[in-house]
Amino acid sequence: MTSTAPPAPAQPRPQRTANTLSTLRRREARAGYLFVLPFMIVFVAMLIVPLGYSGYLSVFREQLIGGTSFVGLENYARALSDATFTGGVARMALFLVMQVPIMLGLALLFALVLDSGRLRLQKFVRLAIFIPYAVPGVISALMWGYLYGPDFGPFAQLGEATGLGSPDFLSADFMLFSIMNIVTWGFIGYNMIIMYSALRSIPTEIYEAARVDGAGEVRIATAIKIPALRPALVLTTIFSVIGTFQLFNEPNILRTIAPNVIGNGYTPNLYAYNLAFVGQEVNYAAAIAFLLGFVIMVVSYIFQLTTSRKEATR
């Protein structure tokens, strides 16, 4: 992301002779590499090597009978025509366009309200909105699973007591929305904190100047704050895109209470997991994982492209 690129290094002082300068630079460079080394070792061992290895795996095919054979891109071709995989990706795309705007919109609203400084108990409210993020995803999915319960969940009980009835949150029609709700609940606070801290970094002189010019809070928000938030918004959106396509914990846990609604391929990640560990099709799972990574890259790139174009035309 261009917006987060580090500032250019300061120019070296001109008094030094060229010779000492270059040795010093070399020494500095060496020290720099040494500092990065521990990270690089872990990065290569834990990310690059597994990535390369799963890429390698994805061009083979191992059968329970008959062993392993090289198949080129066959696994990828199979994935593209696999309705379970494409269906899962489409489901996540729908999730993305529905859930992410709601979540980020609410996070933005909360951040603006908090930043306006007109709230009592500001610290408490900020903490209260953030707390769901501190609850581990697995726990929150279990908790919501209980709340959604069709017989003994509180919503169902309430619906029964009032005679209004309640929707079946765990049915095929509702499940995606139920998961959206869990994710939104969990991640509003996280996104709000990012936006809020970006807002705090705006110099207050700008607000004063705007007020002198007669701008109200709403005008300040739309004309100053939100444009200043652009990098934070881009960042949170990209994170949300990645998070959405990688959805795993929530559906995997809700599976125990709705095993026939959430199938093996409800999300692409769940599909890859089940292929590898239930069907023992590790090679195909590797191909699915790679394709999923590619989808995420493309979507993120398209998003960045459209936002930077808007910036250019402004």
């Binding site: 597994p50 290895y53 799963s54 795996l57 191992e62 697995v138 279990l142 990688q246 795993f248 914990n249 995997n252 846990i253 125990t256 990640n269 890859a272 997991y273 590898a276 560990f277 590790v282 090679n283 799972a285 590797a286 994982a289």
Partner: peptide, 17 residues
């Protein structure tokens, strides 16, 4: 209840093979 993150899953998938 599987709680393994997908990352863990894919890493063990690699170890598996």
């Amino acid at each position: 209840r599987r709680t393994a993150a997908p990352v863990v899953a894919s890493l063990s998938a690699l170890a598996l093979v």
